[in-house]
């Protein structure tokens, strides 16, 4: 039986103990966040949804390690074929990525850019489930497929580990694609500026 006088000290929180756990956690989060922003700590992402995006880069290198058919299930139970594109060892330098997201509050443009000449964005492994590729407008000064490296005398050298090397310089891609999901492992960012707004500039 609890009396009213003792009721004050029951079910209360000891704020000293709260701080003992909360403050170190916040310190850890801030340091990890600083590590992520400078590229020292890789992160992993997994997203679902449908997006179209504009992508430009000064330098783009990747290895396409696989293209797999797969199925996803729609909400009404029907199954939808998608193509899972697997990329590894992705390095993007001087990138600009913008995508428009429609929310109930309006259309917001997400604009992410890394300055030219800075450290590249690196991705260990990425998988993108592409449902449809409606349009690709591509312009590039240099797009090489299957050409990993060049020996000093100009002959191509096979440096791939089972995939198809992709290299592109000064590439601009206007992709209208529907991707069902995408997972990104070992993403190291460096010097990335992220801006979100309704009247944000797009990359193309």
């Amino acid at each position: 039986m609890r009396h009213a006088a003792a009721g004050r000290s029951t079910g209360r929180r000891r704020w000293g103990r709260f701080a003992a756990l909360f403050v170190p956690a916040v310190i850890a989060v801030v340091s990890i966040g600083a590590g992520v922003a400078t590229g020292a700590v890789p992160v992993a992402l997994a997203m679902q949804g449908r997006q179209t995006l504009a992508f430009t880069a000064e330098q783009f290198e990747a290895e396409a390690t696989g293209v797999l058919p797969s199925f996803v299930q729609n909400a009404d139970g029907s199954r939808q074929p998608v193509v899972v594109l697997q990329l590894s060892k992705v390095r993007i330098q001087g990138a600009c990525i913008s995508t428009a997201v429609t929310t109930p509050l309006g259309t917001y443009v997400l604009h992410a850019a890394t300055p030219s000449g800075s450290a590249p964005i690196e991705v260990g492994n990425a998988q993108i489930a592409i449902e449809s590729l409606d349009g690709v407008g591509a312009a590039g000064q240099e797009i090489l497929l299957g050409h990993g490296a060049t020996a000093p005398d100009g002959t191509p050298v096979d440096t791939s580990t089972g995939g198809v090397p992709i290299r592109a310089g000064n590439i601009a891609l206007d992709i209208s694609a529907t991707a069902r999901w995408a997972t990104v492992d070992q993403l190291t960012l460096s010097g990335l500026t992220l801006q979100v707004g309704q009247d944000q500039k797009r990359c193309l």
Partner: peptide, 19 residues
């Protein structure tokens, strides 16, 4: 958070599994 339409419950990779 990963799901816009929840068509896939468990995405491959570290983020899907740990999420």
């Amino acid at each position: 958070l990963p799901g816009g339409r929840f068509t896939v419950l468990l995405l491959p990779g570290l983020a899907g599994t740990s999420g």
